[in-house]
């Protein structure tokens, strides 16, 4: 294992068996997460018409706001790619910087989402007001919870990288966390299309 680590400088994250396992395991975990979100999206699509006299998707959604949020999240995905680039070049400061930017963008996204939720609630669209409300907040909220967890996770990793540097232990962690971040981003693209665009147009 040791000798392998020295030769494979390009991809430190998969230089050890532990690293490889972690990455494959995480891919499989993401497969499970995909089913999870598919089920939530399916439930939402089945129930989105059941607003029980409350505001409809057309009344609620403001595409402008959501587009900004989407932009923030997409950009954060890009910055996390920069972090992995820095990782491959073993630039510790670069990794920390780009992960930091990713966290900030994610945080901004989260704030927008919270604002959005508060706004909807004031319009009478709440978690308990109808089946549409329940399914909407559960779907988007589960995504939001994933973002929140990601923020804590990546912040934790920034601290770890700062303390220990880029090693064959921290590298897979950083790599896997960016996988997670991309996944959240992809899920958001689906939510944006199937919840917001379809809600506004369809």
């Amino acid at each position: 294992m040791e000798s392998q680590a020295e030769t494979a400088t390009e991809h430190l994250e998969s230089s050890t068996l532990e690293g490889k396992n972690k990455i494959l395991g995480f891919w499989l975990f993401l497969a499970a997460e995909t089913v999870l979100f598919a089920c939530l999206i399916g439930t939402y699509l089945a129930l989105r018409g059941q607003n029980m006299g409350g505001p409809t998707t057309q009344d609620l959604f403001d595409l402008g706001l959501v587009a900004v949020a989407t932009g923030l999240l997409l950009t954060s995905s890009l910055t996390s790619v920069f972090a992995v680039n820095a990782l491959n070049q073993k630039k510790q400061k670069g990794v920390q910087f780009w992960l930091g930017v990713t966290v900030l963008l994610g945080l901004a996204f989260l704030i927008l989402e919270i604002y959005e939720f508060v706004h909807y609630t004031s319009m009478g669209h709440t978690f308990v007001s109808s089946a549409f409300g329940s399914s909407f907040y559960t779907l988007v909220g589960t995504h939001g919870a994933h973002v929140t967890f990601g923020l804590f996770w990546i912040t934790g990793l920034i601290i770890q990288v700062a303390r220990r540097g880029i090693t064959k232990e921290t590298a897979p962690k950083v790599f896997v966390s960016t996988l997670y971040w991309h996944f959240i981003d992809v899920v958001w693209v689906f939510i944006f299309t199937l919840v917001y665009l379809l809600g506004k147009v369809g």
Binding site: A32, E33, V35, L36, C39, L40, T43, A46, L47, G49, Q50, N51, M52, F127, V128, S130, A131, F132, G133, S134, S135, T138
Partner: peptide, 28 residues
Amino acid sequence: PALTVGLLLLMFDRLFGANFFDHAMGGS
């Protein structure tokens, strides 16, 4: 994950007053 989601929704219905399975509130 399908069970996870199912149980989550049922928990929301039972604990937090969600309406996924309450047909009177549009659930199914």
